[in-house]
Design a protein around this nucleic acid. Structure first.
Lengths: 135, 135
DNA sequence: ATTGTTGCAAAGGGTTTGCACGTAA
DNA sequence: TTACGTGCAAACCCTTTGCAACAAT
């Protein structure tokens, strides 16, 4: 593993947040000013394949990367976009009971209005709830 | 509503499948040869906002549109990409118990190997399960 | 006249890829 | 040498948007 690769991995692993490729790029740049976006992506993809990190997709904005490999899902705030971890015990089993095919994995995305945004505007009303309503 | 708009809506509403904008475009084209992709998207977006149809996003490929407005979620086959409806009673309540913020909506995407693909290759083994593993 | 809808073409965002160069075993 | 990693720029895919022409009221 090159020094650059270690740096990229370290940025993701040492962050407690979910980071976009752009954010990772910015952080890596401080130590490797000449680094290219393509290289960031190539390595993030490799790390994700090798299960060193996890890629979170399906969000409203760009994919995020995280170092937390423990099974969990995510919530995103529809107002500010903030992404948080969601742990739901028995999720897979609960879902499996309802479908015929064998579940490989679940991607649960819980759309919320986070408490911060609720504080800012307690009357948060979705006249027409999220166009991407699941259930 | 213009005749074109009715045609677009009809394509989505009368299909029992989930259709991509490209597929909808192709179908509408047979009656409106000069129709533009931008117009397809503009109208699909409007219909989704008005809750005449539903947009399914977060899939491995492009967003899909469906006429089924009843709350439900989706599964996608990791081998062939096929998307199917998934109905899980009590899903929202089950999830709500585990999170602090108020749930607006859920997007559950169940990654499976569908029975067709299982038949074709009964030994379907994911040496490295889906890089986008939820739980 | 006013408003909304369309085709077109361009731009947008996020991501991937071909290629030549460089670096390391 | 052989293999791999990198920067760069272009391409990619899906989707959105500005604009001028066009309907429809």
């Amino acid at each position: 593993m090159t020094r650059l690769q270690k740096a990229i991995l370290e940025v993701v692993k040492s962050s407690d947040k979910h980071l976009s490729a752009k954010e990772i790029y910015a952080k890596v740049q401080s130590a490797f000013p000449g680094v290219a976006m393509g290289t960031i992506y190539r390595n993030l993809n490799k790390f994700a394949e090798d299960k060193l990190i996890r890629r979170v997709s399906g969000l409203a904005s760009a994919d995020l990367f995280e170092g937390n490999l423990l099974p969990h899902n995510h919530s995103q705030c529809l107002a500010c976009g903030k992404v948080a971890d969601v742990h739901i015990a028995g999720m897979k089993e609960f879902v499996q009971e309802h479908i015929g095919d064998e579940t490989v994995s679940l991607d649960l995305l819980v759309n919320v209005i986070c408490s911060d945004c609720m504080k800012k505007d307690g009357n948060f009303v979705f006249e027409q709830p999220d166009p991407k309503v699941g259930c």
